[in-house]
């Protein structure tokens, strides 16, 4: 079974300030730094038309909140979790007009979930900018029970729901916002190798 080098694996690239009438940023953890890096090249007044939604997660206490606030965006929100912040993004998109640019930066899990919300709002995936920063930990869907396990760092990994040992493939579903986990020892139950750290 092909595990690595699968073409559905998302491709990330550094955020670039685009032409637009409104700039919606959502970032978690070290994704804040991607916004700060973009700010060094953005034209004056860029953040007057920007909304920033930030979830500190593991990067809490490193001063990212104040650094982002210092950009003086038109709106600034710090959320406790990604789940808590997503409905806010959905409402912002429902009220938005063409010319709105969307920027996502941080963990793959957050980016994937924000993409799901943006796609549901009628935004084409190719027009959404995504920059991966911070942990390589993966959000994995168990193909068998459909349960999603967050922050997976090992290969194989135990499904947090049905308990099967899963081989984490590079196969990625944009609609679910997760990598695919497939039972690693289905042909010979009980022969799963011990988990080893694979995604730091």
């Amino acid at each position: 079974m092909l595990v690595e080098g699968i073409k559905s694996r998302p491709i990330y690239s550094p955020l670039v300030a685009r032409t637009g009438t409104l700039h919606l940023f959502m970032a978690d953890g070290e994704g804040a730094q991607a916004i700060l890096d973009l700010a060094t090249t953005a034209s004056p007044g860029f953040f007057e038309r920007a909304h920033i939604c930030y979830i500190p997660r593991a990067a809490a206490g490193r001063g990212f909140e104040s650094a982002l606030q210092a950009l003086n965006p038109a709106a600034f929100y710090v959320g406790p979790t990604v789940a808590a912040a997503l409905p806010r993004l959905a409402v912002e998109l429902a009220n938005a007009h063409m010319g709105t640019q969307i920027y996502l930066a941080g963990t793959e899990g957050m980016i994937g979930q924000a993409m799901v919300v943006a796609l549901a709002a009628g935004v084409d995936q190719a027009s959404i900018q995504r920059e991966h920063r911070g942990s390589e930990a993966r959000r994995v869907q168990c193909v068998h029970c459909k349960g999603i396990t967050e922050d997976v760092t090992t290969q194989p990994a135990k499904c947090a729901h049905c308990g099967l040992m899963l081989l984490v493939r590079d196969h990625y579903s944009r609609r679910i916002g997760a990598f695919q986990g497939v039972c690693v020892d289905a042909e010979m139950p009980g022969t799963a190798p011990d988990p080893e750290e694979a995604f730091r």
């Binding site: 699968i6 559905s8 869907q141 459909k146 590079d170 196969h171 944009r174 609609r175």
Partner: peptide, 14 residues
């Protein structure tokens, strides 16, 4: 359920 929404290159990824 996993592949829905993928493009031609993506669903042939594996």
């Amino acid at each position: 359920d996993f592949d829905i929404g993928m493009n031609f290159m993506e669903w042939h990824g594996p």
